[in-house]
Structures are given as C-alpha cells and as structure tokens.
Write a protein that binds this DNA or RNA. Structure first.
Length: 897
DNA sequence: GAGATCACG
DNA sequence: ACGTACGTGATCTCT
C-alpha cells in the first residue's frame, strides 16, 4: 500500500487547497522555539537537530489544522536578490544566522522530500516571491490558498481566496489573517499594507521609510489617501507641518520602500500546481533519515513494521526481590549501583512508600516491599560510603531512606540535579519527563503511570515493576551524557562541590525541622479573629450591606459602583482593588483604610496562623521542603509550607515569628544575614571602582549612592528622602532598571527617574558597562551565567517583540547577580554544616531565606556560634569587595534580630 | 485551573 | 512608539 503523509483523495478543483509554507521563516522559528534544547538535540554524528525536529512537529500541527491537498515549501536562495540589486543595504546589518541553524536547512529539505512534499528555491528571489507567485497561480486555478509563515510581511497576500497564517508563540498555534482581520489589526486592507510599510520602512529588512512615521501615522494617512501615490498627490492637504516636510524630504525613500516591500507575484517560478501534489512517503528513506538524526519518537510513529530494533524496548528483565530470596543477594558485590526509592506524592516527608529498584552488575532488582531495604545486605550497601550510588533526586531519596531508619551515604550522582544545571528551563521533577528531554522515551511519566487527583493509584504489580525498572535503568543510561554536558558547560565543579553537597545539607535541615509552638499561634488566632469580626462589621456598616470581602469582584462593585470611588486601574476581569490602588484612594473614604487593614490581618490569619497550625507535625515541628531544582536563577524555594516568606515587615505579621522557637527552651534562634550581598556581587562582577571603594571603606551604600547621584560633598547632606530614593535606584539597577519602573516605585515622574538613572551611570560608569555586556553576552551565547557557571538560557533575547525582548535583557542583567548570590550562600551552608560537625556542636542549621541562615542553638553554644557563623558566611567566597554578615539572636525568631 | 492578591528576599 | 522593575508560594474566589 502506498502511504501518504496526509490524506490524499480525488478532490474537485473547488475543494483543492494549496498550502504554501515559508520554509526559512518556519525553520528559524523552530530553531529558536527549542533554542535552549540546542545541546540536547544532537544526532549521533554531531549535527544539531532541534530545528529539524521542531519543524516536523510544527508541520504536523499545520497539516492537521489546514488539511491541504497540495503543498509547496519555499526557501530563500541566497543573499543576492533583485531587491539587493535595487538597494544594496537591503537586509543588511542583520546578525549572522547561527551555524547551528544553517547546517540544519538541507536536512529539513531532505525530510520534506522523503515525506512527499515539494520544496523549492529560486535564484535571485526570496521565498516570499515564490509564495506570492504560487498563490496567484492557485487563486486563478480556483484553489483555496493557505500561507503559513512567521513573517507578517506576507499578510499583504491575504484575499478572499487566500488566508495568511502567522505562527504564534508555542509550536502549534496559528493566527489567521483574512482581509477582515487585517483591517481590524492595522486599519488597512492587505494591498494598503504595502503602502503602510513603504511609509514606515522596515527595521529588520533595514530600509527606511518616511522619518517620524510609525504604525499609527501610517495607518491614518493610508486610510485617508489610499496609497503612497495618493498621499503625494494630495501633499497640500496635509496640515501637520513637520509631517509634511518629512514626506517631502523622504519622497524617494518612500517610493523605494514601496518597491522593496511589494512581493513579486510574477516571479519566474518553474513549479506548476501539479508539481505541488502530495507524493507518496518514502518510508525506507524516511526511516534511514530518522535513524541518522536519532529521532526515536518519529521512528515510533512510522509504525511497528518500520521500527525494527532501533526503538527502545520497554520490557525490562528484572528479578523481584522478596523476603524469601533476599539473602541470595549477599554473595553479590559491586562498587557502584543505581537506586530508586518510589514514593507516591510530592511530599516525601509523609508520602506512602511504593517500592524500590536497584541495578548493579547489569542486574535489575525490584520490589514493592521497602522493609527489605532495612535488612542485609541492602541496608549495609546503602550505608556503605565506598559504594557509589546513582539516584534521581538525592534529597528525596535521602529523606525517604531516613524515614526507614537508613542513613544513606555514598550518594554521588543525582540525575535531577545534573539535568537542572544543564538546563533549568524545564523545572519538572518527574524522572520520565526529564528523560524525554534527552530523547529517551523508555520510561513513562508518573502522571501516565499513577494518574492524578482522585484517580491517582498504584498500578498492578507487573506494570509498577516495569516502571520502577525503567526508572532505575534510565538513571544509569543517561548518566554519561549528562556528566559530559556538565563538563562541556564547565559546571562539573558547581555540580560536585556545590549542588550535591547542598542537597545533603538541605536534607538534614528538612529532617531537623523547626519547633513551632501551637499555643502561641492559637493565642494569635483568637486575637486576630476578634479583630477581624470587628473590622468586617465596620466595613459592612460603611458599605451599607454585607458582602464577601475576600472577593475582589464584590469589593470592586462596592467601592467603584456603589460608593463611586474612581477606579484607577483595571485587571483582565474587572476593577483592580490591590494595595497600590487602595493606597491612593485612602483619603476619599474611611472604608478604604478599613479594607486595607482587614486584608492585612486576614492574610496573616489564613496563610500564617491557620496555615502553619495545619502543618505542625506530631513531633511539634514543621518540616518544609526546599526545592533545589526549580528556580531559574539558582535560588532555593520552600514549600509545604513556605518558610521563606514568614512576615517581617509589619508588627502584626512579625508576631508569627514568636511561635518559632529553639528545641532547648533555654536555647536561642540565631540568625545571620548577608548585608547587601547582591550589590556587593554587582560591585565585584562589574569591577566598578566607585562602588567597590564604597564597600571597601564600609560606607552605607545607599547614602553613598545618594551623595553620588545628588552631587553632595558629605554624608551629612543626605536627607532620609534622598537615601530612600538612592536605595530604590540601587535595587532597580539589580533588576535591570527602567525609568518607568523606578518612577512607579518611587512615585516620581518618569523624567526625574530618568535623571536619577543617568546620574547613577555617570557616577558608576562600569556598572553601565556591565549591563551592556551582560546583554551582549546573552545574545552571543544564548544564556547568562553566574560566578560559578550556573546558566540561565534566554532564547527571548532574540525576540522581535520589544516587551518580550526587554524582559530577557533585564533577566540577563539580574540573573548573574541573583544567581551568584545564591551560589555563595550555598557554599556558606556547606561550609557551615561541615564546621558544625567538625566542632561536634549540637546547634542545627534549620532555615535558609536567600541571604540569611537560621540556627537552632542550645544555650551553651551561643557564644561559639556568634563567632563562627558570620566568619564562615563571610569567607564563603573571596570577592574584590568584603562580604559582611550580621547576626542576631533571641529565644524565638521574633527576638533574633 | 486561572486570576487576583499579598507574604518574603 | 513599544510598556516594564528581579526571584518565589499560599490562599481565596469563581468558572
């Protein structure tokens, strides 16, 4: 049987649909869609394949949506075209297309041929012109025409018979440009769109239009006069003087731009409509092609007959361990093993044990009886430091085993941590999902195996055992590749000396937990409950009715409709009632303040008082989990509960901290935090002499900045307001400042904010240099990097959309700073833990809050902790400026300041 | 399950 | 002209 890639039947001409694809544009999009996966998509022979792979996925999605009968994929032929002859700067000044992308283009075309799809390029012409010409041919022959591209230029071809589809963010979505949609978006028809472009010029194609004319003016002019020619025929009617003069000055440019913008619909294309008929798939060639590129999932799609033995077999041969045969293991020996402990659910402090799997000496063993782990020889193996163990999620494994009375050592490889360092974009912690990232489909996701929500359940034994066997096998299978990637990224040090040891420290912290007094929280609960009832009553009285205060919708109705306050800001769904808005309305009605107060107390009551009471364990302690492989910057996060956002900014909120106490009733909560760690990191990486000087001398950095940007001679002249402003600028710098953001934060005008920033850059010139370099580096490398080589990929740095690109640029500035600070405190934690053990102290590290470490300290260890903690933290790394850590202590967390 | 809000660094 | 501060998690409402 002949196989076609898409449905092929005999259609009458009227039902024929010609699909024209802009091959370069789609390949380009495909490349950047999986840009961060560049290193993971490499064929056995070393060719990058991310664009080819994504192209195929996009193609599938396009074909499914559009169901064409004929297809042509058009490619650009080369740099020299009739347009460059007309204007030699055409498309000049563009960034060079990466070689990793160029090398993939021929393979995209080869794949198309194998799939039975015609592709075509024409010397001297662009893909656009081929598409324009073929669309015309199609329309004339009575076909329905669909064009797919990532480039809005082609929308000028939209007509009653032709729809232009623009790919949206993500792989599959298309936005349909019909003539009607064009008018909605631009206010002009597809043909008029050419004239609009002629006036505006095109930055990315590098040709100018008329000075000072953007989309708004262009659209207005075209709506009025119909075309460029029309405008110049009626120049005298134009009243705006500047605009008129610009039009006169740039006349030649406008007419040239129109020629450049117009797609040539009469190109000498040698392809006929018959040539675009879909051909039979060449299965043999396609299979060879997929094998060559290492596309396992596509091979699978080709069907069982075609897969052969290339696709991984999901049937693992394993032995089931039982009480009866466990002793047979005793004679076995191995210096390394892979191990997986399966628990159902995220919270491994409480999760149900499901089973385990281990692999050593090429043998797979599985069991659903975790008590076997507590017996010989398994317990001894797990506790033997000389046996190196590979796992997925070291911390989870360590804590799980600890619950079984096993103190694991020799845990040396963690697939989850390795994968997070190599690429932290995908923050899944599912073994299956992560394996899939590396093109290994031999293990299913937990979602597929266990289901979710109410339907979550452990499957029948053979299925479960297969899953466990698959997991432990994949840990071992991908190990070499991941370790190699770490080396390539110069991340082996970060992995071995920072992340792996951090996981062990965190496991210890989580297991220790922190003692929280329910009695203190219960007292607060009563107090707040009374106050909340009173506040509610006051608000209802003021509002004249009862309503649900927690519903922003109902509150918005009361404030902005019933009471007639001015709605200052809107959200997607209605009026905004956020603090930002309410603070501005304070003076207008007493209800506003009442609502603000209510909100504050209500938050503390539900999230902290009640929330924490619910998670105190029978041992009287709270055991959070730190997520080590989640954030984009390398920080930790804390969940179930989050102990990194316990209130500190308001007095009522702070009360919560009184419930956090040391184990020893006479002991101390000891807290030590880095002073201005992010700014110090910035001073270091930027090498800015003025800022370094400030830190070296020990000035108050915000006052120092105030002196600098307000041109003062002495610190005495700095007013509190100046210092506050300077502080906001310092923070803003770290976030990748903008005048708008700063003005909003400080409630000043944009102009003032701009001035602050300009002064700042004048005074700290190397910081400006750092910011520019950070963006440049990210553009060149595709990622930003911390002091310890932690990466954050920033594919959006190439985005055309200003907002999207700007966000990536700010991230390029911020991530190395925030991330390096995160690296540093991790080192401090490791050294601190080591020190506690070395000195045989009973004090425990119990919490980390980004720049702060908190300890549970017995009474008689306070003095030594006061000496060693700040010292260890300050010595975690040597920078060009000193690191300073300040300590505080007390009989509860509230007093430890 | 998404959106709004607000707690932290 | 574009429309913004960087990084998180929990709770509540409402569809």
């Amino acid at each position: 049987m002949t196989v076609f890639y898409v449905r092929k039947e005999n259609y009458p001409v009227a039902d024929k649909k010609l699909l024209l694809i802009d091959g370069n544009s789609i390949t380009f999009r495909a490349f950047y869609a999986l840009y961060r996966q560049l290193d993971n998509f490499v064929s056995p022979e070393g060719l990058h394949t991310n664009a080819i792979y994504t192209f195929k996925n996009m193609l599938d999605s396009i074909l499914k949506q559009l169901e064409p009968t004929n297809i042509l994929v058009a490619f650009d032929a080369g740099k020299v075209t009739f347009r460059t002859k007309m204007y030699k700067e055409y498309k000049g000044g563009r960034q060079k297309t990466p070689n990793e992308l160029i090398e993939q283009l021929p393979f995209v075309r080869e794949m198309l041929t194998d799939l039975g799809i015609t592709s075509y390029e024409l010397d001297q012409y662009e893909a656009d012109d081929i598409i324009g010409t073929m669309a015309k041919k199609g329309e004339e022959a009575g076909y329905e025409v669909a064009i797919v591209t990532g480039d809005k230029d082609l929308t000028q071809l939209a007509s009653a018979k032709t729809t232009v589809y623009i790919t949206k963010v993500g792989v599959g979505e298309l936005e349909a440009y019909t003539p009607e949609h064009m008018e909605e978006v631009n206010g002009v028809t597809p043909t008029e769109f050419i004239d609009m472009k002629a006036l505006m010029g095109d930055n990315s194609d590098n040709y100018p239009g008329v000075t000072g004319v953007g989309p708004k003016t262009a659209s207005k002019l075209i709506q009025e006069y119909g075309s460029v020619e029309g405008i110049y025929d009626h120049l005298d009617d134009i009243t705006a003087k500047k605009l008129k003069q610009n039009l006169i000055n740039d006349r030649d440019q406008a007419f040239l731009a129109k020629k450049l913008a117009t797609i040539n619909r009469e190109s000498p294309v040698e392809v006929s409509l018959a040539d675009t008929e879909i051909q039979a798939v060449d299965n043999e060639k396609l299979r060879t092609f997929y094998e060559r590129l290492g596309f396992k999932s596509f091979l699978k799609e080709l069907g069982a007959d075609n897969i052969g033995e290339k696709v991984e077999d999901k049937n693992y041969e394993y032995s089931e361990l039982t009480q009866a045969n466990l002793s047979e293991l005793t004679s076995q020996k191995s210096e390394t093993l892979s191990f997986h402990l399966e628990m159902l659910g995220d919270n491994y402090h409480l999760a149900q044990f499901v089973g385990f799997a281990l692999k050593f000496a090429d043998e797979l063993y599985v069991s659903d009886d975790v008590t076997l782990l507590q017996q010989a020889p398994l317990k001894a193996w797990l506790e033997d430091a000389a046996i190196e163990k590979s796992v997925f999620d070291l911390k989870r494994t360590f804590v799980g085993l600890h619950r079984l009375g096993i103190e694991a050592t020799g845990l040396s490889y963690d697939m989850l941590l390795a994968s997070y360092l190599v690429n932290n974009e995908n923050n899944s912690n599912d073994l299956g999902e992560i394996a899939h990232l590396y093109q290994d489909y031999s293990v299913d996701t937990d979602l597929d195996v266990y289901g979710k929500g109410k339907k979550q359940a452990v499957p029948a034994t053979p299925l479960l055992f297969q899953h466990l066997a698959a997991k432990v096998s994949v840990i071992e299978k991908l190990k070499g590749h991941l370790l190699e990637l770490l080396k390539d990224h110069e991340q082996d040090g970060l992995y071995d000396e920072v992340e792996i040891p951090t996981a062990k420290v965190l496991a210890q912290m989580e297991i220790t937990g922190v003692k929280v007094l329910p009695s203190t929280l219960l007292e607060l609960e009563n107090e707040f409950a009374t106050r909340l009832v009173e506040m509610e009553a006051d608000i209802y009285r003021e509002a004249g009715e009862r309503f649900n205060l927690n519903s922003p919708k109902q509150l918005g109705h009361i404030l902005f409709e019933k009471l007639g306050l001015p709605p200052l800001k809107k959200t997607k769904t209605g009026y905004s009632t956020s603090v930002e808005v309410l603070e501005q309305l304070r003076s207008q009605s007493p209800i506003v303040d009442q609502v603000l107060n209510y909100r504050q107390i209500s938050k503390i009551q539900s999230t902290y008082v009640k929330g924490l009471l619910d998670v105190i364990q029978p041992d009287g302690r709270i055991h959070t989990r730190y997520l080590q492989t989640l954030t984009a910057t390398g920080r930790l996060s804390s969940v179930d509960p989050n102990l990194q956002n316990i209130p500190t900014r308001t007095e009522e909120g702070k009360q919560i901290r009184k419930a956090f106490v040391p184990t020893d009733p006479e002991g101390y909560i000891f807290s030590c935090d880095y002073s201005q760690v992010e700014l110090r990191v910035l001073a270091h990486v930027s090498g800015d002499e003025n800022m370094q000087e400030a830190f070296k001398t020990g000035y108050d950095i915000h006052s120092h900045t105030a002196m600098k940007i307000f041109h003062l001679d002495s610190p005495d002249q700095v007013t509190p307001l100046m210092r506050r402003h300077a502080k906001a600028v310092n923070f803003g710098i770290v976030y990748g400042i903008s005048d708008y953001g700063l003005s909003k934060n400080l409630g000043i005008t944009r102009k003032q904010a701009k001035e602050f920033i300009e002064n700042y850059f004048e005074q700290y010139p190397q910081i400006k240099q750092y910011m520019d370099d950070a963006i440049k580096m990210a553009r060149e490398n595709g990622y930003a990097e911390t002091l310890m080589h932690r990466r954050r990929y920033l594919p959006d740095i190439h985005a055309k959309n200003f907002t999207v690109r700007s966000f990536a640029e700010r991230t390029a500035i911020n991530s190395p700073i925030q991330g390096s600070a995160a690296d540093i405190i991790k080192v401090a934690m490791i050294n601190m833990q080591k020190k506690l053990v070395e000195l045989k102290l009973k004090s425990k590290m119990i919490l980390q809050v980004h720049d702060e470490l908190i300890f549970d300290v017995p009474k008689d260890e306070l003095e030594i902790m006061k000496r060693i903690v700040p010292e260890v933290m300050q010595d975690a790394i040597t920078l060009d400026v000193p690191l300073i850590a300040d300590s505080g202590w007390g009989h509860n967390w509230y007093d430890a300041k």
